[in-house]
Design a protein around this nucleic acid. Sequence first.
DNA 1: AATAAATGAAAATAATTTTCATTTGGAGCA
DNA 2: TGCTCCAAATGAAAATTATTTTCATTTATT
Lengths: 279, 279
Amino acid sequence: MESIVHKIRFLQDSMGPAEKRIADYILSHTGEILPLSISTLASACGCGDATVVRFARRLGLEGYQEMKLRLAAELSATSTLSAEIQRQDSCLEIFRKRMGEIQSSLAATESVLDPEALDKAAKAIMRSERIVIFGLGNSAAIAQDAAHKFLRLGLCAQSVCDNHMQAIVASHLRRGSVAVGISHSGASRDIVEALRLCKICGATTVAITNYGEAPIVEASDIALFTKSDETEHSILAMSSRIAQLAIFDSIYTYIVLNSDKAARQAIANTEFALQNKKY
Amino acid sequence: MESIVHKIRFLQDSMGPAEKRIADYILSHTGEILPLSISTLASACGCGDATVVRFARRLGLEGYQEMKLRLAAELSATSTLSAEIQRQDSCLEIFRKRMGEIQSSLAATESVLDPEALDKAAKAIMRSERIVIFGLGNSAAIAQDAAHKFLRLGLCAQSVCDNHMQAIVASHLRRGSVAVGISHSGASRDIVEALRLCKICGATTVAITNYGEAPIVEASDIALFTKSDETEHSILAMSSRIAQLAIFDSIYTYIVLNSDKAARQAIANTEFALQNKKY
DNA sequence: AATAAATGAAAATAATTTTCATTTGGAGCA
DNA sequence: TGCTCCAAATGAAAATTATTTTCATTTATT
């Protein structure tokens, strides 16, 4: 199940001029296609009806009808972002609108995430003998959450959220360790420095950031990018933080699925150990 | 913009028998309507084509076509939860599937969240002279993140993630303070005890949990519920954690929007103070 | 029995798909 | 270079299919 819009973009170059016009038109007027009949669309693109049908078939669909249905489905999935949060909104309305932002940020992150880098990071963490995760401010909570996850798996993980401690810990890492630095801006001085130090000491370094050009990227062996469009009120980069959480969660899940019985046992042990903390 | 399915359910009773059959059929075969032509559907419902058109018009739509488009859009919004995470999935595929879980958990949370309780909690926090947030394990990261947010607003907030400290801090609260306890299960002994103590001391207590019957609810003045369907691999209640984050984010945003200039200035000051921590 | 609402068959309209003749852009060759 | 041939691409129109409208009939209600 793939996105039609993606597919159009992908196949665009292998099309003849008339079909390419259709592709262009749909990509630039995606939202306005739905009410158009095939002949309206065809004449808007200066081509015959048949070409539109062929175009739909090329996308692997039954015909124009199905294309419209699929587009409708996709648009609804994408267009939750419409609503701007307003001053008089109730808290629940804000929640609802935030949901949309979260969703679109996750979708954007999915499209920029490098699949190989992600797998590589997961494998490195799974096999490492020690994992340290650096975060400050905003990102400290994420670092802590990630460490918590990995600890439950029985891995030797630790979050370090104090810039002095980060320097100290970094300087004692070695080959076989993995260091993860989290910084939305990618420009957090202490995090970047710590990661550089880790690299010098031979550890594998992973960066999680929102910006491709950021200093933190150079200090990392593996870079994982989130994506969020910061609007006025998302000063705290809320949705990029959720994308970060989701990245760690995927890595966690990947490790659970790909590790031996021992790791599963470790999870069970954790559960058991926590049982008597509850009513 | 209302849901077609909702509308059908709502209008169902005011319809004649033939239209009601259509309503029944659509409600019980929602997913299978899309490829059907109007006459196929009509004969499946034992009625004429015209009745189907009338049915669509009654829903406020142009005709059968538009109804199908709307249904397609709605279905896609609902049916993201389909994919189970599999052992051989790549990390990115896991990410993609997690996105769906997050989305459906947020939607479920939105539907169980009590709007008044949420506004009440936000107002209590906005006006309080001191805010403490309790979390342990999983929830510690959320508590920390929330405290971080409120601190940026210039509020007197603090996360406490050590059960001794929780008891100590709780015992010193008083009227005008707000205590927030986060526990997915709602049964975390230390959190519940701390919250009880807070209540005795006169503080306003807020609980964030996934279960309506949980002990933590009784210890709270205001209860906010998340909702997540825990499947096999969501042991760590990932998606409920995201719902918790989103709740705090909504509260944060609400406060930003509803407070005076001073709070906005506080945010700006925070940004400024952090500037020289970056490259 | 009178009336209004509901309904479906069939006609009218509209949309989509198929067919097929024409065009277009090379590739091969003298 | 100019020519022929071929395959791919294209659109007009025909054929098919789907949707909508009309209107006579049925059904329920007063």
